[in-house]
């Protein structure tokens, strides 16, 4: 069986000439908890965009379940994003004027989940991040930690294999950050693959494996 993610010599250059990635190769198996570490500007966010089907690489090969981006249609890519991937962003990216519940329901609009199940599934996901008491509040009224937990619930709701967390604690205080990390850890224990992007060694320690990126190159790959 092919690995979940297979990256071979990935590079990425931007139009302004920046070479954000200069050849990174690694594989991630289903069920792993991997931290991609590196100082800011090292290319780790660029890597995440490639792995998350948000932006194509400039050269090299990226396979998801053995398939490259080129082998997939636009609809197939949207389906992968919808069913197999969940994103947790540093900026939360919630719809501020919508309630917690509607924010969590959002990915199901684009899924094959029948509408009658939407609310129940969303409630279950909100329960998992322990925010049921805030479920009818509009997103902009929440604290940063609460927002990030909503974002995790949203990432969970379609039950994806792979959860990307891009500096999920970057905008949070220590206590909220710990709560978010606990949730990510428990997701990993439930069998989800988690890829965590961070510049913070303390956060990265929660993961089982660490990929260290510097200047667009993979510097080390260690099990913790």
């Amino acid at each position: 069986m092919s690995p979940l993610i297979e990256a071979i010599d990935l590079t990425k250059s931007y139009d302004d000439g920046t070479r954000a990635l200069r050849g990174a190769s690694f594989t991630v198996q289903e069920g792993e908890f991997v931290a991609i570490m590196g100082p800011s500007g090292s290319g780790k966010s660029t890597l995440l965009h490639i792995l998350g089907f948000l932006d194509p690489q400039s050269s090299g090969t990226f396979r998801f379940r053995g398939k490259t981006l080129n082998e997939m249609s636009h609809e197939e890519i949207a389906r992968v994003r919808n069913e197999e991937l969940g994103f947790v962003f540093q900026q939360f990216n919630l719809l501020p004027r919508q309630t917690v519940l509607s924010n969590v329901i959002l990915p199901m609009y684009y899924s094959s989940v029948p509408k009658r199940e939407w609310e129940e599934r969303a409630r279950t996901a909100v329960e998992q991040v322990d925010l049921t008491h805030r479920i009818d509040h509009e997103a902009f009224t929440l604290s940063g930690g609460e927002k990030q937990r909503v974002a995790i619930a949203r990432a969970l709701v379609n039950n994806p294999n792979l959860i990307f967390a891009d500096e999920p604690t970057g905008n949070l205080d220590t206590k909220s950050g710990k709560a978010v990390m606990d949730i990510l850890k428990s997701l990993h224990e439930q069998g989800h693959t988690v890829i965590l992007i961070t510049h913070d060694m303390e956060i990265a320690k929660h993961a089982k494996r660490m990929l260290y990126i510097r200047d667009g190159m993979l510097e080390s790959d260690t099990q913790t």
Binding site: G52, L54, H74, E75, A78, R79, R81, N82, E83, F87, N93, L95, L106, P107, Y109, Y110, S111, R154, N158
Partner: peptide
């Protein structure tokens, strides 16, 4: 724009 990006990230197609 951000809403559009988010919708695409969670699985909206161009057609959606």
């Amino acid at each position: 724009t951000r809403e559009i990006g988010l919708r695409k990230a969670v699985g909206a197609t161009n057609g959606d």
